[in-house]
Design a binder for these strands. Structure first.
Length: 507
RNA sequence: GGGCCGUUAGCUCAGUCUGGCAGAGCAGCGGACUUUUAAUCCGCGUGUCCAGGGUUCGAAUCCCUGACGGCCCA
């Protein structure tokens, strides 16, 4: 649609031509600014801007930003100039700028502009820069989104996030909070003596979680590789090697559906601590989340989807068995196999197919009947072994493992266990997973990783491990309803852009 | 994978039920205006009504298929 595009930008094209005729470079390489808008205004408000004398003798400022408003008044113009800190008003007068004012006639909303001048306060009370010189920094060839209603079209907001950031002032703070959340978690762990590592994204076996992987191919090695679905087994190899406290914050990939709290790639924190167990990890999670909330929000009470959630420790602790019994009335002990449990769930109106494994049924029961009630932070403890192939069994009951998940705002935000370090039992658990996969074709199970078993055979100390979904934690802290609002570029179905696609690499 | 809803100007949206000249605000274009700030005043409507097919004298509107998005369910 070249004609249409040209029409949209026709007058901007003409202005660009006129600028070039005036020998103005519309894309100069640099503009040395002396202050951000915020710094400039703060400086003025502190009364240090030398507010005596005329514009030739006062302190000069050089500021820059995007033009977000234009109010022409004959031989003068007001502009709103927005940089990453705030808006600053610019006043342009023909009698001061002289020939420099010609540029003003060729400016548009969205252009990037530098201004040098002195600061003053207008009659209306706004701190404003009186420009003695203006420099075009970049001509915008397309108009920005509408200023008053903002950009609402969610498709454009996600596909062209830069427009969302430009038009909607409440977006940047969410991603600032995200950045600080990650920074705080990192320093929390570093302060506790953890070492941060990077483990492979491309792996020969997609193990460590129950999820379908993305598949790719390495040409030189001529072999199939997978994008990791977890970092777990590599981090535990490092525990074997003697890195007693280790963590990774990284992207993992799961080839699954997209909904309010699932994006196919998401950011996961995993940490492992030798000689700790899941009770130690539980205390650390409470501490860490409260510390992060304090740093990011200045308090531990968060507003999330109409609820006030108090993240200060200690969090409620309840066994998974108790929680399911309380919220559904089902005593899962009485239904030790998939058939009887599925039948009981159907009897009580919970949808359950007779082709689901017991683990999957329990997961469904948890997700549909328990999770939505867990608004205040809660640890659900002690999961059935079939849901947790990498966790160590409880000493007094081999059907349950030392595992907890943390919930808040009706979302799962953390998953942790006392790690299974008996190589023979681990092998057996993996084999059970492979057997379940054969039996329940449609479901995701963990995969046997022979190389990991070899590592375990060298001896892994008793270890407490943890995974936290950072995206969901940020949702909780920033009050967002969907994961798409805390991921800058969420996955969307691809759309025909009319451009020729690059050739497919041969498979 | 299934159901429901949506897609109209650069942006935000009316118009669709009940078929009859394609609309508004902001943005834009032309003009006036040297302290405005959603500037104001005068003039101008800029369009592949998501795409394709069908019904009809006539379709943004009704029907079918598809794409993309949203919500709910799986």
């Amino acid at each position: 649609m070249p004609e249409r595009g040209q029409q949209l930008t026709q007058s901007r094209q003409q202005k660009l031509l006129r600028l070039r005729e005036q020998h103005i470079d519309p894309y100069p390489p640099r503009f040395p600014r002396t202050h951000t808008n915020q710094e400039a205004v703060a400086y003025f408000q502190r009364g240090q801007a030398g507010r005596t004398g005329d514009y030739r003798t006062r302190k000069r400022f050089a500021v820059a930003g995007r033009i977000t408003g234009v109010r022409p008044h004959g031989k003068a113009t007001f502009l709103d100039l927005r940089d990453g800190t705030q808006k600053l008003q610019v006043h342009l007068r023909r009698d001061i700028l002289k020939k420099g004012y010609d540029l003003v006639d060729n400016l548009d909303l969205g252009d990037l502009l530098g201004a040098r001048g002195i600061l003053f306060r207008t009659r209306a009370g706004e701190v404003t820069i009186q420009a003695t010189e203006v420099t075009l920094l970049a001509k915008a060839m397309r108009p920005p989104p509408e200023k008053w209603h903002g950009l609402k079209d969610v498709e454009i907001r996600y596909r062209q996030r830069y427009l969302d950031l430009m038009a909607n002032q409440d977006i940047l703070p969410i991603f600032q909070a995200r950045s600080r959340t990650i920074t705080e978690m990192r320093s929390f762990l570093i302060n506790r003596g953890y070492i941060e590592v990077d483990t492979p994204v491309l792996v020969p076996v997609a193990a460590g979680a129950m999820a379908r992987p993305f598949v790719t191919h390495h040409h030189a090695l001529n072999r199939t590789l997978y994008l990791r679905i977890a970092t777990e087994l590599y981090l535990k190899r490092l525990i074997v090697g003697g890195m007693d406290r280790v963590f990774e914050i990284g992207r993992v990939f799961r080839n699954e559906g997209i909904d309010m709290d699932h994006n196919p790639e998401f950011t996961l924190l995993e940490s492992y601590e030798a000689y700790a167990d899941y009770n130690d990890v539980m205390e650390m999670v409470e501490q860490m989340v409260a510390t992060v909330a304090q740093a990011v929000l200045g308090g531990t009470v968060v507003a999330h989807q109409g609820n006030e959630i108090d993240l200060s420790p200690p969090w409620q602790r309840v066994s998974l068995y108790e929680a399911i019994r309380k919220h559904t009335g089902i005593d899962i002990e009485s239904y030790p196999d998939a058939e009887s449990l599925g039948a009981e769930m159907r009897k009580r109106g919970v949808e359950a197919s007779d082709r689901m494994s017991r683990g999957r049924l329990l997961d469904k029961l948890l997700g549909s009947a328990v999770e939505p009630h867990l608004v205040q932070p809660t640890f659900l403890m002690d999961y059935p072994v079939e849901m947790s192939p990498l966790a160590k069994a409880k000493p007094d009951n081999p059907h349950y493992v030392e595992r907890f998940e943390a919930f808040a705002g009706g979302m799962e935000i953390a998953n942790a266990f006392t790690e299974l370090n008996d190589p023979a039992v681990q092998r057996q658990r993996f084999q059970e997973q492979e057997a379940l996969r054969a039996q329940y074709g449609g479901e995701d199970f963990d995969r046997l990783d022979e190389d990991y078993l070899t590592a375990l055979e060298y001896g892994m100390p008793p270890t407490g491990g943890l995974g936290i979904g950072i995206d969901r934690l940020v949702m909780l802290l920033t009050g967002q309803r969907t994961i798409r609002d805390v991921v800058l570029f969420p996955q969307l179905r691809s759309r025909d852009t009319g451009q020729a696609l690059p050739p497919e690499p041969d498979a």
